[in-house]
Design a protein around this nucleic acid. Structure first.
Lengths: 141, 141
DNA sequence: ATATAATATTGTAACGAATACAATTGATAG
DNA sequence: CTATCAATTGTATTCGTTACAATATTATAT
């Protein structure tokens, strides 16, 4: 096992998740490709290398990861859940025409808000939607 | 038709939506009960008064409303879309234990962010999750 | 008022994402 | 090597949503 894989194994063990081959592969995928994939996208792409992989395994793995906080489940638009490994605070912008999701910088923790006294806030999400620069250019033509 | 209903009819006409009885009832429901209902909840509750109402009509109506910007589709958690009439800017907090969603004050437009140059931003959402004050109290017992 | 056209509504079928679960496979310890 | 436990698989099922043809309702013109 190379260095990268043993790091991934470590991440999992730290969170009380046994580092099986599939789980490691799935986490590796999420770490490498930060394009907020759906379960289906993870499944289709990993299936090439691991032909025995089942979609249920992907569902199991990502929900384990989400439960321990290793990855975040993004629900920017209805009926699709996407997964994001990145931990540093950022917002998500979804282009409504092309469907592309990109990260943007925003200091979510500096935002001041009111009306949630005595609540325990566990996660904060900022989602913008609109037309991305590329689509705007294409539309002009 | 009373004053309230003719106001609702007006809102719809202004947005080029013909004010049919069902559409008015559905919009009225969203205006009165600001608890971010799902299509199912709207359907079940209105069915009592309008027994002929079909779920397809609710889907049609809310998607018309969303398209013209009369109501907002909330996707705080995966696999459920909720609808919100309120137009003034606020955030949504979802209690993960009880599922209750409440609004909170946050000035979304004052937040400064970076990395979305040349994009046209059409909507901004702020979603927090955690444990609400009531659940926290209950857990202690 | 009546006929005609346009639109809204209904009910059902079909789809897709997600979950549940029993059966199988794989890993681990004695 | 065997027994035990956990991971994985494949399938069946559920549920929210969409699609669509049939029906009902509304508006318009005669």
């Amino acid at each position: 096992m190379n260095q990268k894989m043993s790091n991934i194994a470590n991440e999992l063990t730290k969170n009380n998740i046994k580092p099986s081959i599939h789980r490691m592969r799935i986490l590796e995928y999420l770490m490498d490709k930060r394009d907020h994939p759906t379960v289906d996208e993870i499944y289709i792409n990993l299936k090439k290398e691991c032909p025995t992989l089942s979609k249920a395994t992907v569902y199991n793995a990502v929900s384990l990861f989400v439960n321990v906080g290793l990855v975040k489940a993004l629900t920017i638009e209805g009926t699709e859940v996407r997964y994001d490994y990145t931990k540093n605070n950022h917002g998500h912008f979804k282009g409504e025409q092309c469907g592309f999701i990109c990260d943007f910088d925003i200091n979510i923790n500096q935002m001041n808000f009111d009306g949630l006294d005595h609540c325990e806030i566990l996660s904060k999400d900022v989602n913008f939607k609109g037309i991305c620069s590329e689509c705007l250019l294409n539309n002009k033509r």
